[in-house]
Structures are given as structure tokens and as C-alpha cells.
Design a binder for these strands. Structure first.
Length: 224
DNA sequence: ACCCAGGGTCATA
DNA sequence: TATGACCATGGG
């Protein structure tokens, strides 16, 4: 059993699952809010929160920035951790309203912009990179718990890799291609949904013959 | 009843 | 630096 290269893994996932059409949203701002709302939360619950925001017609940075905090919290309640996330959304919306949307901040180099995002309350590395990749079209690879689990399992990295080391691994081995980065991460998530702990890897897994212990699930919590 | 979800912050040692 | 508690809804 020899190790698959990253392009080979991508090819297999793409062949198995096809285009994923990420990120599902009507505007870049909706992508940004979705990236915050989906923190440790199923996308199904995020959809409910976004539907509520649309129904109240406040899915704009001016509206969220100026909304009443407790009312905003109730509107996004289905997404869980709703009081925290209401603050996150409002902080981000203020930032985007005053420094992003009309100022030239989003034209800054990705590395500079990434630091600006990371300085915001409620935005960590994965959320920042999701915003950069899917809302602002910057070629930045997104690392999540699924990515860590899969590529630990495929013996590309050691146990408990850090976010930055994992990201460097992908950046060094893949061409800097926006659409590739967008599609690859979406495919990893789709793969994880099909082969998660409750649904062990089976004979239809496109990576089965290169997985050393396919039926042995690694708890996500151990890969944080 | 438990575990998890397209994480992040904060207090503690 | 490295764990652990906490956030909190909804589905399996």
C-alpha cells in the first residue's frame, strides 16, 4: 500500500462525488455570516438561522451592525451558541461596514487581510480562511477537523497537527489554484459526511485501498 | 441517554 | 504551550 499524493486524493474524491458547488449563498456577505454561524454547528441549523435573517430582511452588514443584540440572538437561535454568535456577527459586520465593504481592505494581500480577520472577536483560523476562500476568492486552503482526521488516517501527517502546519502542508504540495482549493475542501467535507464515525468506511470508499485502518474510526476530539 | 456538528474564547497551570 | 470548561440548538 503506497501513499496517495494530494492530487491523487483530489482526483478520487472528485471522481466519486463530483462538483460540490460551494459555498451555497446568494452573496459574499451571506458566506461570511455563514462561516461564523457554522462554527461547531451542523449546516442544517445554519440554514434555519440564515432563512430567519432573510425573513427579517437584515442580511446586510448595515442591518446586522445596527440591530438590537438580543433580537439578533433570537433570530439566529437555531444555529446554537446564539448569544455568542450574535456578538460575533455584529462585531464582524461593524468591521466589514467600516473597513471592508467600501474601503479597500479586501484588496490587501491575503496574508495581511487574514491577520485583520484573526484579530476580530469570534473569528479563528478556519473561519478566517473560509471567508478568504469562499467570500473573497483568495487561494487559501481551509483546514478543519475532517481534514485533520482524513490526512492523519492517510498517513500524510502525524497525530495532532497544528492548523498552520497542516495548511503549510497543503500549500507546499498543491498548485495555487482558487477553484482547486474551493473544491478540494468541499469534497473533504462531503467525504466525511458519508464516512463518519457512525457510518464506518465501507467497500465503496474511494480511498479504501490506501487507508491502513479503514474501519477504525478516530474520534474527532483527539485531533483537535 | 449520549455523541456530534463545515470552532472559538477564556481561565487555569 | 496545553489542556478543559463553556457556549447551546437539533439530529442521529
Amino acid at each position: 500500500m503506497q501513499k496517495l499524493t494530494l492530487p491523487e486524493v483530489y482526483e478520487r474524491l472528485f471522481t466519486a462525488y463530483g462538483e460540490q458547488h460551494w459555498w451555497p449563498a446568494d452573496s459574499p456577505f451571506e458566506v461570511m455570516l455563514g462561516a461564523i454561524l457554522t462554527q461547531n454547528t451542523s449546516w442544517q441549523n445554519v440554514e434555519k438561522a440564515i432563512a430567519n435573517l432573510k425573513q427579517h430582511e437584515i442580511l446586510h452588514c448595515e442591518s446586522v451592525a445596527n440591530s438590537n443584540l438580543s433580537e439578533l440572538a433570537e433570530i439566529i437561535r437555531p444555529s446554537g451558541s446564539y448569544k455568542q454568535k450574535a456578538r460575533y456577527l455584529q462585531h464582524f459586520s461593524w468591521f466589514y461596514l467600516h473597513h471592508g465593504k467600501h474601503a479597500g481592505l479586501i484588496k490587501l494581500p491575503p496574508g495581511i487581510l487574514r491577520k485583520q480577520l484573526l484579530a476580530l472577536y469570534g473569528i479563528g483560523p478556519e473561519t478566517a480562511d473560509s471567508i478568504l476562500l469562499y467570500a473573497l476568492d483568495k487561494p487559501v486552503f481551509v483546514i478543519d477537523a475532517y481534514t485533520k482526521r482524513l490526512f492523519t488516517r492517510l498517513q500524510h501527517v502525524e497525530h495532532q497537527p497544528t492548523y498552520d502546519s497542516m495548511q503549510r502542508y497543503f500549500h507546499q504540495r498543491l498548485p495555487e489554484d482558487l477553484l482547486l482549493f474551493q473544491e478540494f475542501h468541499a469534497l473533504i467535507v462531503e467525504h466525511a459526511k458519508r464516512y463518519c464515525r457512525s457510518k464506518p468506511l465501507c467497500t465503496q470508499c474511494p480511498l479504501l485501498d490506501h487507508c491502513p485502518a479503514p474501519t477504525q474510526a478516530i474520534p474527532l476530539a483527539r485531533l483537535a
